[in-house]
Design a protein around this nucleic acid. Structure first.
Lengths: 213, 213
DNA sequence: GAATACGGATTGTCGGACAATCTACGTTAT
DNA sequence: ATAACGTAGATTGTCCGACAATCCGTATTC
């Protein structure tokens, strides 16, 4: 088993990413290279590359000679994020339906969501389903773009604090519809349902955003 | 006017990118950090940053502890690249048609292409048109994804050595059709024409690839 | 009160150092 | 001969320390 990339900046970036998504770092607070280096016991250059990576993912923003900050996603950002995601994910799901590359992980995530008791948080399971669905599909570039978007999506969900605007059962039901279309090989319907599913998330999040701002 | 990012790695990456796309670095040849540092008179860490950026763009590939190399795009890569681009660009063009954000640069590139004498190379002008079209559109994320794809597209065109599989007039004519739909606000038709336009490029490139491999 | 100058914080780049790891080649054993 | 093994050179991965450039808030000056 060979790692494809440096490991240290990777783990630092992974942990930082988790912290950012979990809102452990409030939006707007400065993430300095030295602070990261100190916290993880690595050199500043190592911390820097980790931060660079997150900046590339959109989870941090930085202007020249300024400390990186967790971005505060605007209403327009949220809308753009979900619209872009719908474009990419609908195409990816259509590709799954056509190529028949439905991943076992996606089915596992779907079952996990079905088994989630009402009231329990399920955002992670929901996202795992979507990620697995797209990962299984053959296009490396669609997968890459989708992965980049999903990071921001998670940040977005965290910032709007919208973890349970829907019940797990409702979300699972929509997923089921997508899966049925995929298994039936109906790419067009699968793509449409995916767009609808994402659009409904979008609307709910925007409504919640409007209500709290 | 404030630069958003470090300038040195940026210029090194820009020059390297140009060299890679121009096939000055043959596919497969190693691009070592020290060689880049030496050539541009910068520290190895700076060269490394530049290389990292190109790796993220897909213009270089690298496995752990190995020198970065210019990737040799496979037939599947070419197909995937154009399919992914069609997904993103069709959505972007539809957005231009809807939002009426047709950029002046796109029109300028279109006129430049119309004015290109038969037999002259026009790949750059063609690409400038597509880039400008998407850049003008409001979604930052669609623009980001498209830009990332276009780098690889340019590499692809260079590798297949397919600079003039079509005449400038033919390409300009297809562009004209897209622009007409955009100006008419017909997002659906603009998207369809964009998909067709990209698909025809794809087929021509693949045919040329098959003929030479 | 506004323009200016200062100073602290942070990034941007440098150079050198050393360990880890990969590949290719040559040596040894079968 | 050939297959397994091991070593050497190349390259990356990470560290450290240093210093210039730049940005920002604050104090100073007019």
């Amino acid at each position: 088993m060979s790692e494809s990339s440096p490991v240290l900046p990777g783990t630092v970036a992974d942990d930082l990413r988790a912290r950012i998504i979990a809102q452990d770092e409030a939006p707007g607070t400065a993430i300095t290279e030295s602070a990261v280096a100190l916290r993880y016991g690595v050199a500043r250059s190592t911390a820097r590359t980790a931060i660079d990576r997150l900046v590339a993912e959109g989870l941090l923003v930085r202007s020249a000679h300024r400390a990186a900050r967790v971005p505060e996603l605007s209403r327009a950002d949220i809308a753009d994020l979900f619209d872009s995601r719908a474009v990419v994910e609908a195409a990816a799901v259509a590709s799954v339906a056509t190529s028949g590359t439905l991943s076992a992980d996606a089915l596992a995530a779907h079952r996990a969501l079905l088994a989630t008791p009402a009231g329990e948080p399920f955002a992670e399971t929901d996202i795992a389903f979507h990620r697995a669905l797209v990962t299984g599909q053959p296009s490396a570039r669609l997968a890459r773009m989708h992965s980049a978007l999903m990071g921001e999506i998670e940040l977005c969900i965290g910032q709007v604090q919208a973890h349970s605007l829907l019940t797990a059962a409702e979300v699972a039901h929509q997923h089921q519809g997508i899966l049925d279309a995929v298994v039936a090989g109906d790419a067009e319907r699968a793509a449409d349902l995916t767009r609808e599913h994402i659009a409904s998330s979008r609307e709910r999040l925007l409504a919640h955003y409007d209500a709290t701002h």
